[in-house]
Amino acid sequence: MKVTNDNLLEVAAKQVSSRFGFYTDEAMLRPVGIQRHGTTRVVMISLSEYERLKRRDRQVKYVKDLTDDEIHAIKTAKPGKASRALDDLMADTGAG
C-alpha cells in the first residue's frame, strides 16, 4: 500500500478483497487504486465524486432537440476574461 503524489492510495487487489469495507471507507476520503500484478487497473471513488465527474461530461445534442431556453443561452453567451484576452492577443498587429 502506498500513496502517490496525487493522493491516490494504491493497494493490491488481494488486500482490497480481504478488507473491502475498510477500502470502501477509504474511497470516501480519497481515490483507491486497485492493483493487479503491480499495475493499477481500476480506481474506486466515492459516489459523490463519481457524480461530480459525470456532471462534467460533455453532452452532445442536435440543434433540433434544443429547447428555446438553451438556444437563447447560446445566442446571448458572452466570452469570459480568458477568451477576451486571447482575442486581444490575436488582434495584436505587431505579433508574428
Results as ranks from 00 to 15, higher is better:
52 R>M: 09
52 R>H: 02
56 R>H: 10
44 M>K: 07
71 I>M: 08
58 R>F: 12
58 R>D: 08
44 M>I: 00
63 V>G: 10
43 V>S: 06
54 K>A: 14
43 V>M: 03
67 T>S: 14
44 M>R: 03
65 D>H: 07
40 T>F: 04
48 S>V: 07
43 V>H: 06
53 L>C: 12
59 Q>G: 10
67 T>P: 02
73 A>P: 03
51 E>F: 09
56 R>M: 14
49 E>H: 07
40 T>D: 00
47 L>R: 13
66 L>S: 02
58 R>Y: 13
59 Q>K: 08
67 T>D: 02
61 K>G: 07
72 H>D: 11
57 D>F: 14
65 D>I: 02
46 S>Y: 06
51 E>C: 07
51 E>M: 15
41 R>K: 12
53 L>H: 11
68 D>C: 02
69 D>I: 02
68 D>R: 08
69 D>G: 07
51 E>A: 11
57 D>A: 14
47 L>F: 15
50 Y>Q: 11
44 M>H: 01
51 E>Q: 11
41 R>P: 03
73 A>F: 06
44 M>Q: 13
47 L>K: 13
64 K>F: 11
58 R>N: 14
45 I>F: 04
73 A>D: 07
63 V>P: 04
69 D>L: 00
55 R>G: 04
40 T>G: 01
57 D>N: 15
46 S>N: 06
61 K>L: 14
52 R>W: 01
41 R>V: 08
64 K>C: 09
68 D>F: 07
54 K>I: 07
57 D>T: 03
55 R>V: 03
45 I>Q: 01
44 M>G: 01
57 D>W: 15
42 V>W: 04
46 S>P: 00
72 H>E: 09
70 E>D: 00
40 T>C: 09
47 L>V: 15
50 Y>S: 06
65 D>W: 11
41 R>W: 06
70 E>W: 02
73 A>H: 11
47 L>S: 11
46 S>V: 05
57 D>L: 15
73 A>W: 04
65 D>Y: 13
54 K>P: 00
58 R>M: 09
62 Y>R: 13
